[in-house]
């Protein structure tokens, strides 16, 4: 369903925000060895073991977010993507503490998704949770760039308007090119 990793990431960040998190961290690490390791963690309301099990069932949603569609898709899609790419998936969640979603797969697996537009993902994640802190981390062969929502919001005097978002996107794009060695 989702064509790129970034589409999955946005879905997972939305879940975190919807779970009432005040901090969300996304980390995408592409190792020297060619592995892709993805972690999305939050300090939101978390899930009981039973809720976590149900969350992985594509025919279950909590029935609050979209009463007209009772199937949840974000988590099952991500898991399916990781497993189709021959990788491993893990979901850890504790009620009242938070949730961490993890996936690791080979970047060169024929069914591994392309990265997608990282800078677009960052901007779209940034506008999601006003007032909450986010760390969006991209690492490529040991070179790492961390985007903190609070830092960008401060530099841009808020992230509300189109001009700020267009500038943020350019900034993130440049940071990305630099770690990828294309700067």
């Amino acid at each position: 369903m989702h064509a790129t990793l970034c589409e999955h990431l946005l879905d997972l960040v939305q879940n975190a925000v919807e779970a009432g998190a005040s901090f969300v961290q996304v980390e995408v690490v592409e190792t020297e060895a060619g592995d892709v390791e993805v972690t999305v963690s939050d300090n939101g309301r978390g899930m009981t073991p039973e809720e976590a099990r149900r969350a992985l069932d594509p025919f279950a949603s909590d029935g609050r977010k979209h009463p007209a569609r009772r199937v949840g898709l974000g988590l099952p899609f991500f898991r399916q993507m990781v497993e189709q790419a021959g990788g491993e998936f893990d979901l850890r969640s504790e009620l009242g503490v938070g949730t961490s979603v993890f996936g690791r797969y080979r970047g060169d697996h024929p069914d591994a998704p392309p990265m997608g537009e990282w800078s677009d993902f960052v901007v779209q994640a940034l506008v999601l949770g006003e007032g909450l802190e986010m760390a969006l981390i991209r690492e490529w062969r040991g070179r790492r760039v961390v985007i903190r929502r609070s830092e960008l919001a401060e530099a841009l005097q808020g992230l509300g308007d189109a001009e700020a978002l267009a500038l943020a996107r350019r900034y993130v794009g440049e940071q990305e090119r630099e770690i990828l060695g294309k700067g």
């Binding site: 369903m1 989702h2 589409e7 979209h66 537009e117 677009d120 993902f121 779209q124 189109a162």
Partner: peptide, 18 residues
């Protein structure tokens, strides 16, 4: 930009507005 919106191209729409 829920799952269904993203699948339908909402990310590109967002970007186009920005």
């Amino acid at each position: 930009m829920g799952t269904c919106g993203i699948a339908a191209g909402a990310r590109e729409t967002f970007d186009a507005f920005v």
